[in-house]
């Protein structure tokens, strides 16, 4: 995207000054202040770049680790229609991972490097995917609550100051909203189904509600990156603000589903015009982040295993490309060629 008028003069001055840091910083600040998009070739502070790489990598990793809890039910989906929907969703998640790794690569890193960091436990993924999917209803709860929380987080990212990230989010959000509605509809079918199905739906909501609220991150007074991210317009709203917005959306949706939320303290606060809700167990959140959640070992283990067991396939593709891209034309059959 072309730079707007607000920072054009400052950028021109910076170019003329040949690396004068202050002028470059001033141009960057002016672009951010004017709500312009920062693009890959623009100068940006090292800390801005590092912060984006951290956040985008974590986001990409969440998409691919997030395939596991849902893929866990593909082979057991109870109808062919639901099976098709679930397969399409897991496929979309892999696609989102691809967009996000590509967007992160515009900052000078590579997918391989980021995956290595994930596998080594040096970069994170969303804490939510360390919870197990124990029944079919969990697939619906993930669609409704987890995707719902993700959308609440991600819609503002469509206006993030970094252009490639913002554009990736536009595409991701469209598909996520679709999945979210499908998850809701799955739960609705269960809630209105047999007593056993209704109970299954309620149990899933009971288990996924609090972990979903934790997806918005630590409370504002304990969030290490929030203030700086908001100043850079990477983030637009605070963790607590987004979390409140999410609760306000979910309360009427739960009522429409005929399911309850597992929090006796939820009630409408007339004065503030929003819902009050109970305290989150931040100890559990910290434990999950530290690797002590119910599925941390399993999720990372499966990811590492898929990567290690697939190494020979990737090596084969690379070897084939080396043989066949040097202008030699099509494969020259060796030995016993055709039938």
């Amino acid at each position: 995207m072309a730079a707007g008028t607000a920072s054009r003069a400052a950028r021109a001055a910076a170019d003329g000054a040949q690396g004068a840091d202050a002028a470059l910083q001033a141009a960057f600040d002016a672009a951010v202040a004017a709500d312009e998009r920062i693009e890959p070739r623009d100068w940006m502070p090292d800390a801005y770049r590092a912060s984006l790489v951290r956040q985008m990598a974590q986001h990409a990793h969440s998409e691919i680790i997030g395939m596991q809890p849902e893929a866990n039910w593909i082979t057991r989906a109870p109808s062919l229609r639901r099976k098709a929907i679930l397969m399409a969703k897991v496929q979309d998640e892999a696609g989102h991972g691809l967009y996000l790794y590509s967007a992160a690569e515009t900052l000078g890193t590579s997918r391989d490097e980021l995956l290595d960091k994930l596998h080594a436990g040096r970069q994170r993924y969303s804490s939510i995917f360390n919870y197990p999917t124990l029944t079919w209803a969990d697939v619906g709860a993930i669609g409704w609550l987890v995707d719902g929380a993700a959308i609440t987080n991600q819609v503002p990212l469509c206006r993030c100051s970094y252009g490639p990230y913002a554009r990736a989010m536009v595409r991701v959000c469209k598909e996520e909203s679709f999945h979210q509605r499908q998850g809701y509809e799955l739960l609705l079918a269960l809630s209105n189904g047999t007593p056993a199905q209704h109970e299954m739906a309620q149990d899933a909501v009971n288990r996924w509600w609090w972990p979903s609220l934790m997806m918005f991150g630590p409370p504002d007074d304990a969030s290490a990156h929030s203030a700086q991210s908001m100043a850079w317009k990477i983030k637009r709203h605070s963790n607590d603000e987004l979390r409140r917005r999410f609760v306000d959306i979910c309360v009427p949706q739960a009522a429409a589903l005929g399911l309850s939320l597992p929090d006796p303290d939820i009630r409408w606060n007339e004065e503030l015009g929003r819902h009050d809700f109970g305290a989150i167990d931040w100890t559990e959140f910290q434990e999950v982040l530290k690797g002590n959640g119910p599925c941390n070992e399993q999720r990372l283990g499966q990811r590492r295993r898929a990567h290690e067991e697939g190494a020979w396939v990737r090596e084969a593709a690379a070897a084939y490309a080396r043989k066949h891209t040097s202008g030699a034309g099509p494969a020259v059959p060796k030995g016993k060629a055709t039938a």
Binding site: I64, M67, T75, Q91, L98, R111, E309, G310, A311, R314
Partner: peptide, 17 residues
């Protein structure tokens, strides 16, 4: 469908699904 989450490379997650 059993491959989901186990493919050798991300592009194959998409292709096999």
């Amino acid at each position: 469908g059993e491959w989901a989450g186990h493919a050798p490379v991300l592009e194959e997650e998409v292709a096999l699904a």
